[in-house]
Design a protein around this nucleic acid. Structure first.
Length: 561
DNA sequence: AGTTTCGGCGCC
DNA sequence: AAAGGGCGCCGAAACT
């Protein structure tokens, strides 16, 4: 029997499974089997597995070599549906959804697990609240009805399917890991930082730079302590508000050069140094814990390992296996292309309908060929720039691409006014919780923690003022729609790599890395191109906008772009 | 002593 | 040049 099947791990190690009919309701008896992996492996014809949580089930399957084509993650869908319904902050577990359905007390979501190097041990920890299969199917059926009540039901269905695919990809990435040469990493560290001293203190180069800084000030100064540095500058008669690079850069003082160099290297030492290597690299692979849907915009986060912030110099350590290659693919000017697709601005669509450098085209039309100004203006429009040359540039942008600018302006206004703001597919940003909390807290009334909406409550967002919410909403419609598109891209690419030796090993917002035998590289490059086009059509419907990638076939990530 | 916030900077 | 969106990570500082 093909089609959808539901699956729920049972108490005591077994698993309950049942086929679902076209209406999403049970189409056969619930059967109980002892072996989760066996139950899935023996049913390769199942087109989509419905389960509570991919993070709960799929790592176990992957560990025994079982992959699935598609799934539907009930809790991921619950989060998206709640958001869409303007109910951000309500518990999003399947158990909570069931309780709402039955009118019982709604259990709060379990707290987020904290990061922990070498996630292997925690892989099989049960996460979240167990739910019997019949209950799960009831929640699923109701979710199907809720999709039907969404603003755009088809888009919402696509969104939850895409998010579910993202969950699969994240689990697979966590399982596979990124090829990582610890020896190369150590060489890079040694080149940059010098020898390590016994006792775990600063490596040689940092110690030298700290001495140079101190010498320049004429007294002992610790460059890693901002307060110390600000004080030292003050004694030298120089007022600085902080020790941020852009503020220090313009200061004329002999300490500046070694100080900036120190800060650059210090950062690498503490964030991606020897300790990181020890914690996160095992058996030639870096295994971060990717979390699909980790942010309200739909972008992913990693839970430990800082996989989305690997400094460029450290990328030298990412090396393909012998005879293999890394296909590094980076979407070109994704934000303005997405803005063109969602706003339907004729001028911007026309520009984004070409695969050539979009910022150059924009500058030809509105900025007298000044590409840098054009890029600044576009990013300023998307990020909500409020001052500087950006404003003047924004005006030029508005004249030539009025619908595009109006689109983000409308989103900003909606955000400021606390109205719902959605991505093209219907991912919704949390306005009410933030607005209400601000209003209450500004009035001096503290909001109880449980009312802040748990995981859905974002401190940096909720605590800001209305204008900040406007900027957030402005960016949300673009960044979020781009994230939606990226999920579809991943899903399509994953499907195309099926049956090949190629493995997806990295994903970072608008960039993917596929690790494959040298002779598969050309096929992979083509697959990425096709997947990008398909994702564009699926996500945004009929649109002239292209989504080109810059691809590089390399042995070392450091050699890409 | 343990936990939370801050400052600074890495990536997109 | 500076500032506008999203994150994570670290040590130090500031808190309990």
């Amino acid at each position: 029997m093909t089609g959808r099947w539901a699956l729920a791990p049972a108490e005591g190690g077994g698993v309950e499974i049942a086929p679902l009919g076209p209406d999403g309701l049970p189409d056969g008896p619930v059967c109980r089997e002892e072996d989760l992996a066996g139950a899935v492996r023996s049913r390769p014809h199942v087109s989509r597995w419905i389960w509570r949580s991919t993070a709960e089930v799929y790592p176990q399957l992957l560990a025994t070599g079982v992959r699935v084509a598609r799934c539907y993650d009930v809790e991921a869908a619950e989060a998206l549906l709640l958001g869409h319904e303007g109910r951000y902050g309500e518990p999003r577990s399947a158990a909570a959804a069931l309780a709402r359905l039955h009118g019982g007390p709604v259990p709060p979501d379990p707290p987020q697990r904290t990061a922990e190097p070498g996630a292997q041990s925690s892989l099989f920890e049960p996460r979240g609240v167990h739910l019997p299969l019949t209950d799960l199917m009831e929640v699923y059926a109701e979710q199907q009805r809720r999709h039907g009540r969404a603003e755009h039901p088809d888009r919402m269905r696509l969104l939850t399917a895409a998010e579910s695919a993202g969950m699969l990809v994240a689990a697979e990435l966590n399982h596979t890991g990124l090829p990582w040469r610890a020896d190369v990493h150590r060489d890079v560290l040694h080149d940059l930082l010098g020898e390590r001293y016994a006792g775990g203190g600063e490596p040689r180069r940092l110690a030298e730079l700290a001495d140079e800084v101190s010498a320049a000030f004429g007294r002992r100064v610790r460059p890693d302590l901002p307060a110390d540095v600000v004080k030292a500058f003050a004694r030298a008669g120089i007022k600085v508000r902080s020790t941020r690079r852009w503020e220090i850069e313009s200061v004329d003082h002999p300490a500046v050069k070694p100080l900036l160099e120190y800060k650059k290297l210090y950062r690498i030492w503490v964030a991606h140094g020897w300790a990181w290597l020890q914690d996160w690299v095992r058996d030639g692979r870096f295994r971060p814990e990717f979390q699909a849907g980790g942010t309200v915009t739909g972008r992913w986060v990693t839970n430990g390992g800082g996989a989305l912030q690997i400094p460029r110099v450290i990328r030298r350590a990412v090396v393909a296996d012998p005879g293999w290659r890394l296909v590094v693919a980076d979407a070109d000017q994704m934000e303005p292309r997405v803005l063109a697709a969602v706003s339907r601005d004729p001028g911007l669509m026309e520009v984004a309908g070409r695969e050539t450098d979009l910022y150059q085209s924009v500058s030809d039309r509105a900025f007298a060929g000044d590409r840098a100004q054009a890029k600044l203006a576009v990013l300023g429009a998307v990020y909500g720039q409020t001052s500087g040359d950006g404003l003047k540039n924004l005006a030029a942008l508005r004249r030539r691409f009025p619908k595009a600018v109006a689109y983000v302006d409308d989103a900003a206004r909606a955000g400021e006014e606390g109205r719902l703001v959605r991505t093209w597919l219907g991912r919704t940003c949390p306005p009410a919780a933030g607005a209400r909390q601000d209003a209450t807290e500004e009035a001096g009334i503290p909001v109880p923690e449980e009312e802040r909406g748990g995981d859905a409550w974002v401190p940096g967002y909720a605590s800001t003022d209305a204008r900040a919410r406007g900027r957030f909403a402005r960016n949300f419609v673009v960044q979020g729609s781009a994230a939606d598109w990226a999920l579809l891209l991943l899903a399509a690419l994953r499907q195309r790599c099926e049956g090949m030796a190629a493995e997806l090993v990295f994903f970072q917002h608008d960039e993917v890395i596929v690790h494959c035998p040298q002779e598969e590289a050309d096929v992979v490059v083509a697959a990425i191109r096709e997947a990008a086009e398909l994702a564009g059509r699926l996500t945004f419907g009929e649109t002239p906008v292209r989504f080109p990638f810059t691809t590089a076939v390399v042995e070392c990530y450091g050699d890409a772009k």
